[in-house]
Design a protein around this nucleic acid. Structure first.
Lengths: 215, 215
DNA sequence: CGTGCTCTTGAGTCAAATCAATTATTGTGG
DNA sequence: CCACAATAATTGATTTGACTCAAGAGCACG
């Protein structure tokens, strides 16, 4: 059942929901622009709006009762985010850099729209992939999967990708500490699988080896 | 958007999809009975059928390329399982004990049915909860959350619950080893939060303390 | 050209994994 | 019904990967 047309790369650790075009019959709002660190919505807000990223990067996270943070996903141009299962948002969303989004309102009836359904399945698949990584992989494998996922999302820009998120964001996404992420990146460099340009740009030198590690 | 009527206990680590009744307008098959260890479907099978558990317990798992296993969920009477995002199954399902299920076929159009949509959202929520546990909690917290989740699913049977799955199954569900699960259960006993009756029956002595640990 | 971030790197600790028996349990056939 | 095998669970000893704590180094910005 529930056929999704566009199979995502299974090595992606990021919450991509790869939308293929604007959904038919859905009233899409105009572009909203967000400054760096701007909150798009908070935990506890009323759910119902779905967002499409036009440019920039959005971080979606969730805080546990103990105050620990899980970053559920990073969303780039073309990605869809904001799905929630209840009436109230469990997650909050923040712009990591100057970003643009468009939003549209969904109710249950819109699931009959195949494009909306595909977005939801894409989201579901990305969570399942994330779960697999957190449930089975060690630090260097997680970081490798993460970097491949990011690079793939940037599409045709070649093997180079900018990381708009901090080491701490990556750590909270992968269930690690920022120091461990930093060391894993260092080890990947020593292994000649990546090159760092500054702290926030990576070049993937051996994508296949990274996938072997991370998948 | 996407209002789910029946909020699940957020401490549940298990993939409950709590269905409230038989879906309208869906042709439900008769009960299939499964012997212990019987495979209901395999990784690579054509997806499309959704299952409702009538009695017993079904384990759904996924094997990574490296051969590591993630148990994505345990499903008891009343639970729904079998959702997949692609045409092929990424997971396989096995009966942990003598069990009965009924299945029905879904296609994308059925998502317009609110009861089907609710099942899907229930499933989505259970994955997100699982993700939160794997991403933020330590061994004893994971096991506590798991036990509370199991006990809650057994409904009105009081604080006692049977565990039809092995320590290894629990470990692969929680991203731990079976020895660590065994020790965590032991520690919960020492803390007087649970009592074990044999290896496969638990009595929750202090549900609130367990939730505090696990949520 | 400081000041405040973020990132890196090092040293030490600790929780969980691994390795290795031992001890229940469960199942089977005599 | 009991002995025995097979499987599952516990427990102990040890190792290790990741966390914690603590400096520095690099960079971005006013």
């Amino acid at each position: 059942m529930l056929i999704q047309k566009d199979f995502r790369n299974p090595s992606s650790a990021i919450g991509s929901t790869g939308y293929l075009g604007l959904p038919n019959g859905i009233k899409l709002g105009g572009t909203n622009r967000h400054r760096e660190k701007e909150l798009l919505y908070a935990q506890g807000d009323l759910a119902g709006d779905i967002f499409i990223v036009e440019f920039g990067c959005i971080r979606v996270s969730r805080i546990t009762l103990e105050g620990r943070r899980l970053v559920t996903g990073f969303y780039f141009a073309g990605d869809v985010f904001g799905f929630e299962t209840g009436a109230e948002r469990q997650c909050y969303a923040e712009a990591l850099e100057y970003s643009g989004t468009r939003k549209f309102h969904l109710d249950e009836r819109d699931l009959a729209n195949p494009q909306i359904a595909d977005m939801l399945f894409g989201y579901l698949e990305s969570i399942q992939q994330h779960l697999l990584i957190l449930g089975t992989q060690n630090a260097i494998e997680r970081v490798a999967a993460f970097l491949v996922g990011i690079a793939d999302r940037r599409g045709g820009e070649g093997p180079r990708a900018r990381l708009p998120m901090s080491r701490c964001d990556i750590a909270d996404h992968l269930g690690l500490t920022l120091e461990t992420v930093s060391r894993a990146i260092h080890r990947l460099q020593v292994l000649k699988l990546i090159t760092l340009v500054g702290a926030r740009d990576v070049i993937l030198l051996d994508r296949d080896a990274l996938i072997d590690l991370g998948a």
